[in-house]
């Protein structure tokens, strides 16, 4: 059976990458957030945030909706149903790993 440190490698990289985990965590706390908010919150450049959002959209975890607020173009991002269950599953997996790491004893052999 793999130890807690080996199991880290099994985490979904699409979700576990720090920038994407930050985006998904923010989106899990709201119905939707716009591009500007995510830009300020994550500290990513516009290009990086766009690339991460595209990956998450392609993975079916977020939905991107473009529209207008008056004359200003807006981009609203929200979690899909799959995104919600994926981030919840990821949190549970992380918590399990944390507990396993706390209990872990090095192999005496």
């Amino acid at each position: 059976m793999p130890g807690p440190f080996e199991r880290i490698a099994e985490l979904d990289r699409l979700v576990h990458e720090p920038a994407r985990l930050a985006i998904l965590t923010a989106l899990s706390a709201c119905r939707s957030a716009d591009f500007l908010f995510l830009l300020r919150l994550t500290g990513l450049t516009k290009g990086n945030l766009s690339a991460h959002l595209t990956k998450l959209e392609q993975g079916g975890l977020v939905a991107i909706e473009k529209g207008y607020n008056g004359r200003t173009p807006t981009t609203q991002v929200s979690l899909t149903r799959e995104g919600k269950s994926e981030i919840e599953r990821h949190w549970k997996a992380l918590e399990k790993l944390r507990l396993a790491a706390l209990e872990w004893q090095p192999d005496p052999r």
Partner: peptide, 14 residues
């Protein structure tokens, strides 16, 4: 917490 914008931004585009 939200910090400064890292570059010129156009909030309407992805």
């Amino acid at each position: 917490i939200l910090g400064p914008l890292p570059e010129d931004h156009d909030a309407g585009t992805v």
